[in-house]
Computed example of a mutant assay.
Amino acid sequence: MKLNKPLIFTLFLTSAAALPAAQENGIDKNSIENSETTAVNSKTDPADRVMPDLVQQQQKDIAQAQNSETDVIWLESGGQKQLALLQRAITSRPAGSILIFPDRSTSADWPSIVHPLRTQLPEYNWNTLSITLPGLPSEVVPQRTLPALQDNGQIQTSPNLTNGGESEPTADPAQTNGENEASNSDAATAEKNMANYKKLVAELGQQASSQLADVEGDIKIVLGVGEGATWAMHYFMQDTTQPDRFLVLLDPALVMDEHAPNLLQMISEAKVPILDLWFDNNSIRQQRAELRKRTARRNGNQGYRQIRLNLRSNDPRKEPLWLTRQLRGILKTHILDAQKPAQPAAEAMELTPGSGQFN
Rank of each mutant, 00 (worst) to 15 (best):
Arg104Phe: 10
Ser158Asp: 14
Trp110Val: 01
Thr132Ser: 15
Leu75Arg: 03
Gln154Asp: 14
Leu149His: 13
Ala84Glu: 09
Gly96Ser: 03
Tyr124Ser: 10
Val141Ser: 14
Arg104Tyr: 08
Arg104Asp: 05
Pro137Ser: 08
Thr91Ser: 12
His115Pro: 02
Asn125Trp: 13
Ser158Tyr: 05
Ser92Phe: 03
Trp74Arg: 11
Trp74Asp: 03
Leu83Arg: 07
Ser158Trp: 10
Thr70Glu: 09
Val72Trp: 08
Val140Pro: 02
Glu139His: 13
His115Val: 12
Asn127Lys: 09
Thr119Cys: 03
Gln82Trp: 01
Pro147Phe: 06
Pro134Leu: 07
Leu129Pro: 01
Ala108Lys: 01
Pro116Gly: 05
Thr119Gly: 08
Gln66His: 05
Pro122Leu: 08
Gly153Phe: 07
Ala84Phe: 08
Ala95Met: 06
Gln82Ser: 04
Gln80Trp: 08
Val114Gln: 02
Ala95Lys: 14
Gln59Met: 10
Thr132Lys: 08
His115Trp: 12
Ser105Thr: 09
Asn67Gly: 15
Ile131Met: 11
Ala148His: 12
Leu75Cys: 08
Ala65Cys: 00
Asn127Gly: 05
Ala65Arg: 11
Trp110His: 13
Leu99Asp: 00
Ile155Phe: 01
Ile73Ala: 03
Gln59Asn: 02
Ser97His: 01
Ile98Arg: 03
Ser130Trp: 05
Trp110Glu: 09
Ser68Phe: 10
Ala84Leu: 11
Leu146Gln: 07
Gly153Lys: 14
Pro116Thr: 04
Thr132Pro: 07
Ala63Gln: 03
Gln59Cys: 00
Thr128Met: 11
Gln120Glu: 14
Trp126His: 03
Asn152Trp: 14
Ser77Arg: 08
Leu121Tyr: 04
Leu121Pro: 05
Thr91Cys: 04
Ser138Asn: 14
Leu117Lys: 00
Glu139Asp: 14
Ser130Gly: 04
Phe101Asp: 01
Arg144Val: 12
Val72Cys: 05
Val114Thr: 06
Asn127Asp: 10
Pro94Met: 04
Pro94Tyr: 01
Trp126Tyr: 11
Trp126Arg: 02
Trp126Lys: 04
Gln66Leu: 09
Gly153Thr: 10
Gly135Lys: 15
Trp126Thr: 11
Ser105Tyr: 10
Pro159Leu: 13
Glu123Leu: 13
Thr157Ser: 09
Gln154Thr: 09
Ser107Gln: 02
Pro159Met: 14
Arg88Thr: 10
Thr145Glu: 05
Ser105Lys: 15
Ala95Pro: 00
Pro102Phe: 01
Ser112Glu: 14
Leu129Tyr: 06
Asp103Leu: 04
Glu76Met: 08
Thr128His: 07
Gln150Val: 12
Val72Ile: 12
Pro159Asp: 12
Gln120Met: 13
Leu117Val: 01
Ser97Gln: 00
Pro142His: 06
Leu133Pro: 04
Ser112Asp: 13
Arg104Lys: 13
Pro111Ser: 03
Val72Tyr: 08
Pro147Val: 11
Gln150Met: 14
Ile90Cys: 07
Ala95Gln: 11
Ile73Asp: 05
Asp151His: 12
Ala65Met: 11
Pro142Val: 07
Glu76Ser: 10
